[in-house]
Design a protein around this nucleic acid. Sequence first.
DNA 1: AATTGAGTTAAACAATTGATTGATACGCGC
DNA 2: GCGCGTATCAATCAATTGTTTAACTCAATT
Lengths: 216, 216
Amino acid sequence: MENLHDEPTKRRLLEVAGRVFAEKGFRAATVREICLAAEANVAAVNYHFGDKHQLYLEAVKHAHRQRIEQFPLPQWPEGTPAAVRLRDFVRTFLARVMHGEGRGWEVQLMLREVLNPTEATAMLVQEYVRPHFELLNSILAELLPESFPLERRRLLAFSVIGQCLHYRVGRPIMQLLLSEEDFRRLQPDLLADHISNVILAALGAAPPLAAEGESP
Amino acid sequence: MENLHDEPTKRRLLEVAGRVFAEKGFRAATVREICLAAEANVAAVNYHFGDKHQLYLEAVKHAHRQRIEQFPLPQWPEGTPAAVRLRDFVRTFLARVMHGEGRGWEVQLMLREVLNPTEATAMLVQEYVRPHFELLNSILAELLPESFPLERRRLLAFSVIGQCLHYRVGRPIMQLLLSEEDFRRLQPDLLADHISNVILAALGAAPPLAAEGESP
DNA sequence: AATTGAGTTAAACAATTGATTGATACGCGC
DNA sequence: GCGCGTATCAATCAATTGTTTAACTCAATT
């Protein structure tokens, strides 16, 4: 009969809880609201997850894993230039962060975790952030001389991440700041090119942005 | 309506409310907790501000105004080079955003507003974000050729803001990512120089970062 | 057929919350 | 003193919240 109930209640709760927690935060979200949206009984949360907080942790894990699978990094053939891999990295990261106006709740859930760290934050860093951060650093290392200090290379990595994340964190601000037309133009691919160009130009691996009419 | 002598409690309430709202968010913060910390009666909030939500709006305004006064932009003498003004802008913005581990609650309050826009957000953009965004754009315009498209110039402005904000938004992540020693090294002045250098190098107004032993 | 046990349900619980009330004290001009 | 408005207080209200409980369903197992 009801298609929704073909999926086990526990899974439905996880999905719905992720969305609601992302939208309203842990405290503001009520188990009643979640259970209503998941078409489950109010007691379902406590039965399947113990309590509200445990449901939250599971929802964060669930969302995070789902997002990685959704936008995997490309497999680079041996010898792919570092500049290309940087572009791909930025493109993938931006896609993960920006894709889906309504379906991007996974990212918002993680952003909440960042702004208000809980137990889940450390897991998120260890499992998700650190590997990507080190990959980005290894790419940058190939674009920089051996003598370039590790400390400054890390700052460059932060410059990449910071620019990317800003299009998610600052999105509501941009929407109020720009005309509807200009705001709509901020598409992931365009922004990925821009960010890559800024970094590559800053490194000297591409011509400066200010240079205009120069072509080979 | 309100006498000048009944300021103390109302002012105390504003200060404390800002801190608590920043720390726990609107919903999780309780008027009881705020009043207790402000050494005021539970009814004080409703008496002075009408209700909890109104107190929140006033607290946001208060925090935002206080932060601008605390770190004003320098007065540039006529003819100050655009590169210098860009550096100053980044430095000031970073200081506003990063300064004070425990006293930076004003920024956290605004970040919450960004992640979860309410009525106060539009006011914040109109009164605070837009003027600074246009100032930054005018500085960048001087560093770019006339023909440089406005759209791409705005992206550059976002690159500046994004890098700066990341050291506030991503701070908890960085603390988990870096060693305690490396994390402590992330001081505003150092970061301001880095960000300015990245942007100026990308524009061609400064030598590329990868260039090492080059000096005039 | 009887039993078991996981899953679901409605009802209720205790605690917390924002908001209201009525009383009281204080300061002021008259 | 008297009247009047402001501010604070303890007590309380009505609503919401997370959680618990006990009864019920139903398919698989014995």
